[in-house]
């Protein structure tokens, strides 16, 4: 099977790009009937090309058929190039986590934009560009929340959000002050820190099959967060069995939860 053949309309396909290499991760999904979804993005460290976009173009997908782009979190290895994909896929809706302190998070983004303009590059630059596209061009946005189906196709295939948990949102609000302090320092960069509780894990439903896509979600001692929260509290996964599981956090042991 040639991996660079476009699947036919009756074939669902999940393409994992990068996942184990350490430089980035992206998932490109064909839900059938030429409905496509892109989760995260990263760039080839040597060529600088945006890999999920390159893949879609290689298999000759009409980018107008990309329905949804999910930004699971804003770490470098998941977000680089996502604004260009969003711009190129004119009909795609942008999905990211909404939390109560989103307004404060935008202050943090504002600092990132200032740094990007004057001082140093920042992963927030990508997020800023996506927000600018939404605001300037009326592009659609959908916020993630647990058990929310963010996309449902005509053939009843879809994507449901499993995380982050409400408890994670609350904790993040408290951390934002620290983030803004670091964001204000031009001589420091934010470090992606474990655990990645803010990461959006998703459940893909295609016909009778389910696929669990773990993004960078990790385990935690707090049962109200991470994978423990999904197992305990997510209705979407109750009484279903996935036939595919994209291991979280690039195969790190911190992504392993026995009950999954």
């Amino acid at each position: 099977m040639n991996v660079f053949n476009k699947p036919n309309s009756e074939t669902a396909e999940i393409t994992l790009i990068g996942t184990g290499g350490g430089y980035g991760e992206s998932v490109v999904i064909h839900l059938g009937n030429d409905d496509w979804v892109v989760i995260d993005s990263f760039k080839n460290p040597v060529t600088g090309k945006i890999l999920p976009l390159e893949y879609l173009e290689k298999i000759k997908v009409d980018l107008a058929h990309v329905r949804l782009i999910i930004c699971t979190h804003w770490h470098d290895d998941h977000i680089k190039g996502i604004s260009e994909i969003f711009e190129a896929c004119k009909n795609a809706t942008f999905c990211f986590a909404k939390f109560s302190s989103l307004k404060q998070f935008f202050v943090f983004l504002g600092l990132g934009e200032l740094k990007g303009e004057k001082l140093s590059q920042s992963c927030t630059e990508e997020f800023n560009k996506c927000i600018d596209l939404i605001n300037a061009n009326g592009r659609k946005v959908v916020y993630s929340s647990i058990d929310r189906m963010v996309l449902k196709t005509d053939s009843n295939n879809g994507i449901t959000i499993l995380s982050p948990a409400d408890a994670t949102h609350d904790k993040f609000e408290k951390k934002l002050g620290e983030l803004i302090k670091i964001g204000r320092d031009p001589n420091r960069e934010l470090l992606p820190r474990s655990p990645n509780h803010l990461s959006i894990a998703t459940l893909l439903s295609i016909g009778q099959h389910y696929a669990l896509l773990g993004a960078d979600l990790e385990i935690t001692t707090d049962k109200n967060e991470g994978w423990a929260n999904i197992i305990e509290n997510c209705n979407a996964i109750k009484s279903i069995k996935s036939s595919f599981f994209k291991i979280p956090h690039h195969g790190s042991s911190t992504g392993y939860y026995e009950l999954v």
């Binding site: 202050v107 983004l109 504002g110 800023n128 927000i131 600018d132 605001n135 009326g138 946005v141 031009p186």
Partner: peptide
């Protein structure tokens, strides 16, 4: 260091973006 003035500008920009995003866009 980023000056207080620049910080205020960044904050205003962020608030503006947030307000526009919430008020002007449809959520599916």
């Amino acid at each position: 260091q980023i000056s207080d003035e620049d910080f205020d500008i960044a904050m205003d920009k962020g608030n503006e973006k947030y307000d526009f995003l919430i008020s002007a866009n449809e959520c599916i």
